[in-house]
Amino acid sequence: MSSQKTLYLNVSQITEVRNKDVFLKDIAKIYCDDRNIENRVNAMKVKAIRLDKNRRYMENVLDIIQDIQKQFPDLQINNIGEVDYIIDYHVPHKPRRTWEWIKTIFVCLICFFGAAFAIMTFNNDVNVTDVFSEIYLLVTGKESNGFTVLEVSYSVGLALGIIGFFNHFAKYKINTDPTPLEVEMRLYEDNVSKTLIQNAGRKESDIDVT
């Protein structure tokens, strides 16, 4: 008597696809000790997208399990991933490098001038110039001309502090930890995915608050 085979299913919370025919291997990782079963399950179609526009589709892993068990009734399936998941379909198009560069430069300019303005207004609010002048006068007994070791040290320290906090300079990182921006973007993506899934469930149950 042969032992029952087990298949492990790990579906990602959200997967970006560009093909209208979505297969299980596109959205999940599959493992089974029987390679034939594993390959056949990977090749199963889980979604056929009909609309030719960017859209997110909320799905449930129970549908996948039902389809697998129709083909393999004796197969034991262990889901170790998400229960509700999202297929994020994007219409395929040629990369527009010029437009991508324009958007990148625009965002960089906004961040640069916005940060500079924020730093200048903070310095004016706390009157850093007068504070440095008073400290310079107390320590050296001379009047400050506005360009002393204090101003230079403050400027260099500010730049080093920003680099150290964001753990990133150009393509180099100080250590292997994710940067604060990466953490915030990941939290934002997770919150968006959870909200989409919850909203889909509420609409199906007629409890939508929107």
Rank of each mutant, 00 (worst) to 15 (best):
V46R: 06
I163Y: 06
N36H: 12
A118H: 00
F122N: 03
N42Q: 14
N79V: 02
K70I: 07
I162R: 00
G81Y: 08
G164C: 10
F122H: 00
V139K: 07
I102S: 09
E59C: 14
Y154C: 02
Y89Q: 08
I163N: 07
G114L: 04
N124Y: 06
V83D: 13
A170F: 15
N167R: 12
I64V: 10
M120A: 08
D130S: 07
W99C: 14
I87H: 03
E143A: 11
G146D: 03
H90R: 12
R56A: 13
L137H: 10
A159D: 00
I65Q: 05
D130V: 04
V131N: 03
E143M: 05
G157N: 08
V41R: 08
R56C: 12
F112D: 02
D88A: 13
D63K: 10
R50T: 11
N54P: 04
I37G: 08
H93A: 11
N39F: 09
I64Q: 01
R56F: 13
K53I: 12
N78V: 15
R56T: 14
A159N: 09
A159H: 06
D67N: 07
D74G: 10
T121M: 01
E100M: 10
E100A: 11
I37F: 08
D130Y: 04
T121Q: 03
D125F: 05
G146P: 02
Q66Y: 12
I49V: 07
G164I: 04
N36F: 04
F112M: 06
Y85Q: 02
G146H: 04
V107G: 08
D52I: 11
F166H: 03
K53D: 08
G157D: 01
L75Y: 03
I80A: 10
C108F: 04
I77E: 06
F132L: 02
R56W: 09
L158Q: 00
V91R: 08
I105Q: 09
Q69A: 07
H93Y: 10
T121G: 00
E100R: 08
A170H: 14
Y172R: 15
I87M: 07
I68K: 00
T129D: 04
M58S: 13
G81L: 05
V126C: 01
I102M: 10
V126H: 00
V41N: 09
L160D: 13
E82V: 09
V149Q: 08
Y172K: 15
A170W: 14
T148F: 07
I65C: 06
R96K: 10
N145L: 09
T121W: 00
E59S: 09
N145T: 13
I102W: 04
Y85F: 15
L160R: 06
D84V: 10
R97D: 15
V126E: 00
D63Q: 12
V152L: 15
N124Q: 10
V61L: 12
I64S: 04
N124C: 07
V83P: 00
